[in-house]
Simulated assay, not measured.
Amino acid sequence: MHFLCASSDLAEGHSRAFSVAGEPLFGVRRQGKVHLYRNRCPHRGIPLNWAPERFLDDSASLIHCAHHGALFLIESGECVAGPCEGQWLDVLGCQEDSQGIWLSGSAIPATGDQ
């Protein structure tokens, strides 16, 4: 497991970038649960964000690709609008305990694995 941050560093309704072994990731907290994804849009394979902590749309209800406007469900990573509609972000396992938020497992799966 890889430690990502203290629980207090990812507030409800917010997102945050992480890097593990050089791999860009991001997390979103929604309804108390943390959802963790590889920071890679399925449309072009580029990072979703322009600003370091900006992964959500203006309403903070969807994950937003700043480059081409794709929108993804926070809970599953499914693209519901934009050029990659019907595709998915790479979901990564995470756990939260009294120490904070952790990437589950010993390694990040290869791109495309879910």
Score class of each variant (00 low, 15 high):
Q87K: 13
V28W: 00
H67I: 08
S8C: 14
F3M: 04
T111L: 13
C65L: 04
I108T: 01
C41Q: 01
C65Y: 05
Q31W: 12
E96H: 01
V91R: 15
R54N: 13
A110C: 11
H43Q: 01
G69L: 11
L48Q: 09
R16H: 09
L48N: 07
A66H: 14
S19N: 08
G93Y: 10
V34C: 12
H68L: 05
S8Q: 15
L89A: 12
G86Y: 12
L48H: 06
A81S: 15
W50G: 02
S7C: 07
I74P: 07
W102N: 00
A107T: 14
V91Q: 13
I108N: 00
L62F: 13
G100L: 08
H2M: 08
W88N: 13
E12G: 08
N39K: 10
E12F: 07
R38I: 05
N39P: 09
V34F: 02
Q87D: 10
G112N: 08
D90Y: 05
S106I: 11
C65D: 10
S61V: 08
N39Q: 08
D97H: 10
I63F: 05
G82V: 06
E78T: 12
V80Y: 10
F72T: 06
C65P: 05
L4Q: 00
G100R: 05
A6L: 14
R30S: 14
F18R: 01
A51I: 08
C94T: 01
H2S: 15
I101Q: 00
F26Q: 00
H64E: 14
T111S: 13
P109A: 03
L56F: 10
S15F: 02
C79I: 11
